[in-house]
């Protein structure tokens, strides 16, 4: 816990820099307004003005916090202006896609570990696919599926499934291969069947690897869902909030959607971290 003080110091420094930048970036507009009204601004007035503009270039932290509070607690959650509403839209698509992508990834990994032909044929492509900007196909998936009549949660979930799929495959293959030769030999002397070796040795041994790639996968799935919400005409979801904010110059709205997405990502990764710690502890693998 000795890191708490340094972390708080860094966070405090970021907030201070943020305030400074807000004053500096918004001062141009404030000075223009004052010049047009032919009034001279004192330094104090300039600072108060830059920190309370309607559409600042960079909103001050307290403006973003106020907007966040207003649009989560202040609105009923069924309202179109509630961030909880938009966050839930994004979260549900993310979770659906993540569950699907992870399931497929684990299945493919099992196939790869048990079939040499699949290992040699598929694995290089799974690794190479990580160097490809997969996110670029998100708009196409959305449009093509909507022309087929599939809209709503499914297209976004497909994108996030696709993004969480490859990290899980690569991590899980590594995990299922992680038992040492000695352990495998021991299973052999027990005359364990392939099935038994899989469930009693390979599967438990792969857990640390699985959780590491689940963390990567869920972060990627969230990004995928947010990007998937961009081309749909900006109706619902956190990505849509950002896009409509950028259309109408509502910077405070963009920032609050961004912070909401960040909190969501941190929560998701944190939840997986907690599950990981408990699972590994119960399995006796805690570091």
């Amino acid at each position: 816990m000795k890191s708490i003080v340094p972390i708080l110091t860094v966070v405090a420094a970021i907030v201070v820099i943020w305030y400074g930048a807000a004053v500096w970036m918004n001062s141009q507009w404030a000075l223009d307004q004052a010049g047009r009204a032919e009034v001279e601004l004192s330094f104090g007035e300039l600072v108060t003005d830059t920190l309370s503009q309607e559409r600042p270039r960079l909103p001050a932290p307290h403006q973003v916090v106020a907007e966040l509070w207003d649009s989560t607690v202040g609105k009923s959650i069924t309202s179109k202006r509630s961030l909880v509403f938009h966050g839930w839209i994004t979260l549900s698509a993310t979770l659906l896609g993540f569950a699907f992508g992870t399931g497929m990834g684990i299945l493919l990994a099992v196939g790869i570990v048990h079939s040499r032909a699949m290992d040699m044929g598929v694995m290089p492509w799974a690794i190479a696919s990580q160097t490809i900007p997969i996110l670029a196909i998100a708009p196409m998936i959305i449009v093509v599926l909507s022309s087929l009549g599939v809209t709503g949660i499914i297209p976004k979930a497909i994108i996030s499934a696709y993004l969480s799929f490859f990290p899980v495959v690569v991590g899980m293959v590594k995990g299922l291969r992680s038992p040492a030769h000695m352990d495998l030999d021991l299973m052999h002397t027990y005359s364990a069947s392939r099935n038994q070796t899989f469930w009693k040795l390979r599967m438990p041994a792969s857990m640390p690897y699985l959780f590491a790639s689940l963390k990567v996968g869920i972060a990627a799935a969230l990004v995928g869902t947010i990007v998937g919400e961009l081309p749909t005409g900006a109706i619902r979801g956190l990505g849509a909030r950002m896009l409509s904010g950028s259309y109408y110059g509502q910077t405070v709205q963009i920032w609050s959607a961004l912070i909401a997405a960040a909190i969501l990502a941190a929560l998701l990764v944190g939840i997986i971290g907690i599950i990981q710690r408990n699972t590994l502890k119960r399995m006796g693998m805690a570091q």
Binding site: L135, V223, I226, V227, S246, A257, A261, A266, V269
Partner: peptide
């Protein structure tokens, strides 16, 4: 590093 930084794009 784990956050959806792509979201800063509109800003």
């Amino acid at each position: 590093a784990a956050l959806p930084i792509v979201g800063t794009a509109p800003i």
